[in-house]
Simulated assay, not measured.
Amino acid sequence: MLTAADIVRFDDAPPPPGASAFVAGAPEAESIAIVPADPGWAEDFEHLARLIREALGERALGIEHVGSTSVPGLPAKPIVDIDLTVADSADEAAWLPPLEAAGFVLTIREPWWYEHRCLRFGAPRCNLHVFSPDCPEAARHKIFRDWLRANAEDRALYRDAKVAAAEAANAEGEHVMQYNARKQQVIRDIYTRAFAAAGLV
């Protein structure tokens, strides 16, 4: 059973020594483009959600549009983030083959971090995050999304942080991981307010 303490406690532990999250090796750094909000992202999510449901049927316990493309009016990288809940994300044989047959490609495997898996889809571009039930990270994603949808001030704050982080990361030739690190403090500050409003702290 997921508790408030689980949700508000972030797991920032690094990977075990010698471990890599990337299934086929770290991808090359690419320019990070933050583009104006596109109402079509909601339609892209619905299209992708249908593909996932058709592939998995009842094995898809939950499909949520998360990340910046799920927040109307928020500029974002043009990649739809989706959280998929399955019975056991570590049991890849139970859910991965049908998704691969539908065109999704496993790119990240993190057994040490909530047994997270991430698959990519080419068009529309998508990062499909796979978690087990009652995962704190998936719960946080929904809290963050809903808070930004409802709070213009923090939405603007996050927009500015994203743009600044992308400009700095591109100037240094950094990977998306470094881009994420550059905006982490702003994200944590927003979470603090969202957690308080939800009565979690």
Rank of each mutant, 00 (worst) to 15 (best):
L2S: 12
A4I: 08
A5H: 14
D6S: 12
V8D: 00
V8I: 12
D12S: 08
P14H: 04
A24Q: 14
G25C: 06
V35K: 15
D38P: 05
P39F: 11
A42D: 14
E43S: 15
L51V: 11
L51F: 04
R53Q: 09
L56C: 02
G73K: 14
A76F: 01
I82D: 01
L84T: 06
D88E: 11
A90S: 13
A94C: 06
W95F: 10
P97F: 11
P98G: 06
L99G: 04
A101E: 15
G103N: 04
E110Q: 15
R117W: 03
C118G: 04
C118F: 11
R120E: 12
F121E: 06
P124T: 05
C126L: 05
N127S: 10
F131H: 07
F131G: 03
D134A: 15
C135A: 13
P136G: 07
A139T: 07
K142G: 14
D146L: 06
L148K: 00
R149K: 14
E153G: 12
A156N: 07
K162V: 02
A164R: 08
E167I: 10
Y179L: 08
N180F: 09
R182Q: 03
R182C: 02
I187A: 13
R188I: 12
Y191D: 03
F195W: 07
A196S: 13
L200K: 01
